[in-house]
Design a protein around this nucleic acid. Structure first.
Lengths: 118, 118
DNA sequence: CTCCGTGCTTCACGTCACGTTCACGACTGG
DNA sequence: CCAGTCGTGAACGTGACGTGAAGCACGGAG
């Protein structure tokens, strides 16, 4: 099931690599590896992916996501999250064709979970 | 670990996960797991399932159900409940073929209880 | 200083999911 | 047989999300 790493640690301590299936995130280096390939991510993209991957398998609310990555309350009508989810999905799919990583839960938020494209 | 659980202990409020047989409900995430599979539910579907599962094994009156999920008195002729029970049954059966979860008690309401279809 | 590339935000518009209501058929109890 | 209740599919208005492009801000190169 879950990749052992049941993180009991706080996300505040940047340093622990996150591994979920074929996805590896190295906070210390600002680097992400998907299916063995290096994926260049910007700061926002990287933190968004981290926030999602840290709670892999769980739905993360848009609210909480924005709070974590942007550091403030999500203003109504703000579409930044959507845009960056889109950019992430593009890069992830480019690195691992045939896989889906970020799932939308309308009205709630997003869930990170590597699955075959079905 | 992460979010400090705001547990009011109130039934119907967002709080602890509900587990009944192979069904797991996570109110905080709007997520349901049936037989180990993630079942994406809309807000209404999710709250309806929660309301039923919270009183698993008991018959919940249509009145009470509507009050809990829709938050108002059930208007005569309103079929919303029926429609959403139908949607729920579809998704539940899709996730766990051969099982029946929601049982009709004509004139009274519905009862949540996982049973083999046989 | 000016030019230019990169990254983040905002805007516009199309698409789709959600929730409500309607319609019709099947079933129940009297 | 009749009236009421439920199952189920479909239509429809609304809002949420996906997505491409434009607009800013910033920093480095020339």
């Amino acid at each position: 099931m879950s990749t052992a790493t049941h993180d009991t640690g706080e996300p505040g301590s940047v340093g622990e690599p996150i591994r979920v299936a074929q996805v590896e995130i190295r906070p210390a280096e600002g680097l992400a590896l998907i299916a063995g390939r290096v994926v260049a991510l910007s700061v926002r993209e990287f933190e968004l992916l981290s926030a999602l991957a840290e709670r892999a398998g769980h739905v993360v609310a848009r609210d909480a996501l924005f709070q974590t990555v942007w550091g403030g309350p999500l203003r109504r009508g703000d579409r930044s999250i959507d845009v960056y989810i889109h950019k992430l999905r593009q890069k992830l799919e480019a690195a691992a064709p045939g896989w889906r990583f970020i799932h939308t839960h309308i009205g709630f938020g997003y869930r990170f979970a590597p699955e075959p494209a079905a």
